[in-house]
Amino acid sequence: MAKLSLMFENKLVKEVPIGSRPVTIGRSPDNDLPVDNLAVSNYHARVYYEAGRLVVEDLDSLNGTFVNDLRVERATLHDGDSIWVGKHFIKVDATADAAIPWDTGRKTAAPKINETMVLDTKVRRDMLQQAAAMGERAQFSAGRVKVATLVVLGGKVNGKEFTLTNKLTVIGKSPMATVRLKGWFKPKMAAQINQRDDGYYLGTGDKVPTVNGAPIMGTVRLNDGDLIEICGVRMNFIFRE
């Protein structure tokens, strides 16, 4: 039987086994895993078995439920996954269960393909659906790529908020910069943000920005809530639906 361990700052708070009844997570004390934190909704999420799979479901919580950094509404859980609610996380221990294969439906979706081929619309839809069924019948929130926003907290720039829709966003004094720094002696291209398939990456330019206080080395992947500081400008990197 699988169990869930509620952790806070790497310390075990509470451990519960998952039986036939769903395990509930939330701020209210009558939850199986009560989490005493204002960022957590009264009834935040629940974990239960469905057709042999362990599933986590967000109960329309205000701040969301995250599985391994990804915000989810519903997702299949695997051994070793972490569920994040607020600053607490819940470790999933499903070693006792039969392993849930990761690649169900994917390997069988098509034979090995050497020649490049194009999917027509119908096949494409089917294949994407199969691929979606592979991990779970998850509806990842919005089911699509999330767009990030830079919210300016302090410093002289040409705006308060910047939505990062371009592949490449330049921070600097140059007139082509999206986030334009104002003032004397500011570099033309201080730093840049590259939008890639799996997220946003901050890279150095003429200056080395800091993320959450630490100077970056080369490029770093940005996470929701990161604090970026460059040339006296402080910005909050956040995802919006």
């Binding site: 592949k167 490449l168 291209m189 840049q192 590259n194 890639r196 990456y201 890279g203 150095t204 330019g205 003429d206 080369g218 490029t219």
Partner: peptide, 8 residues
């Protein structure tokens, strides 16, 4: 650009 390779 400045040592970083970015996919466009």
């Amino acid at each position: 650009r400045s040592g970083n390779l970015q996919q466009l």
